[in-house]
């Protein structure tokens, strides 16, 4: 049995999501190889080789792979697929982009976003934005899986696997145009350890930013918002946490002026610790909060800022 893990990396090194996917691969069992696709990604391949339990690292480089175009990844992986019983990728936007494409070409049913490996062919994955957990058994000989990083611990360092070159594929019908990465000192919403989210109670876009931004900066947190706040125009759409927005599971989630509609709870209820600040003691958010502070945010947030020092 052998498992191929497609690495998530920035060229110079592999991201922690790769370590977590290796842990999932180890639970499936067998030899683990890591495929690094990219352009000028030798550093990432060397970093992948240091992950414990890895048999070898395959490095595929081409122009289309520099931007992880799905068609190029597909063309790289298909010739390698024969040697593997399972192909895993972290459930990042890249992994979600190329994994189903590979699965369709191999005529297998992809299994998205697993949070647990029950046995080599059985996996647990959230459905309905995490309101239910589905345990599925695959009858496909080969499995194509994306792994939700928050579901697994990071594989340790300490390996010294050899790095081999393999042929990189291309994406003839796709051209990369540009990239605009958010240059913010704040962490990304999906990966942040602390998230502070604001709701409709904040009343305006100016107030939203005046209250949430300093608090986020003090805590080194990402800023989120409820759908109600986004719909009202107080916060940009990419701040939205919930069933139709981003699903987050940080160590600490602080909800300010958020009532806790079902659709919002679906996006944050797997957070480790939830804090709710709301002046309505009957707000549903308090039913999922570890710590609830019944207070007007106008008083509570400045006090919180002061208490944080």
């Amino acid at each position: 049995m052998a498992v191929l893990v497609i690495a998530d990396h920035d060229g110079a090194t592999v991201r922690d999501t790769t370590h977590k996917t290796v842990t999932a691969a180890a639970k499936i069992g067998g030899d683990i190889d890591i495929l690094v696709v990219g352009e000028g990604a030798k550093g990432a391949a060397d970093a992948a080789a240091k992950i414990k339990g890895v048999r070898k690292v395959l490095l595929a480089e081409s122009a289309g792979l520099g931007k992880v175009l799905a068609e190029a990844v597909e063309a790289t992986v298909l010739p390698l697929a024969d040697g593997y019983d399972a192909i895993l990728a972290p459930a990042t936007t890249d992994g979600k982009n190329f994994a189903p494409r590979i699965a369709a070409k191999l005529d297998v049913a992809p299994i998205s976003d697993i949070i647990e490996v029950v046995s080599p062919d059985t996996f647990v994955r959230p459905i309905y934005a995490g309101n239910a957990l589905e345990t599925v058994q695959s009858s496909d000989a080969k499995k194509v899986i994306t792994v939700r990083p928050t579901g697994f611990d990071s594989a340790e360092e300490g390996g010294s696997a050899p790095v081999e070159s393999v042929t990189g594929g291309d994406a003839p019908k796709t051209t990369f145009v540009s990239e605009e990465m958010v240059k913010s000192d704040r962490p990304e919403l999906g990966a942040a350890k602390i998230v502070v989210s604001g709701g409709r109670a904040l009343g305006s876009s100016e107030e939203f930013h005046a209250v949430m931004d300093p608090l986020a900066d003090k805590l080194g947190a990402a800023v989120g918002a409820s759908r109600a706040a986004v719909d009202a125009g107080y916060a940009p759409n990419d701040y939205q946490v919930g069933q139709t927005g981003k699903v987050v599971a940080p160590e600490l989630y602080i909800a300010i002026g958020i009532s806790g509609a079902i659709q919002h709870l679906a996006g944050m209820k797997d957070s480790k610790i939830i804090v709710a600040i709301n002046k309505d003691p009957d707000a549903p958010i308090f039913q999922v909060a570890d710590y609830g502070l019944v207070a007007d945010y106008k008083i509570a947030v400045p006090e919180l800022m002061a208490a944080l020092g």
């Binding site: 990042t92 796709t174 990304e188």
Partner: peptide
């Protein structure tokens, strides 16, 4: 995409 926006032409 994670961390920003990517523009491609297909």
């Amino acid at each position: 995409i994670d961390g920003g926006l990517q523009t491609i032409e297909v």
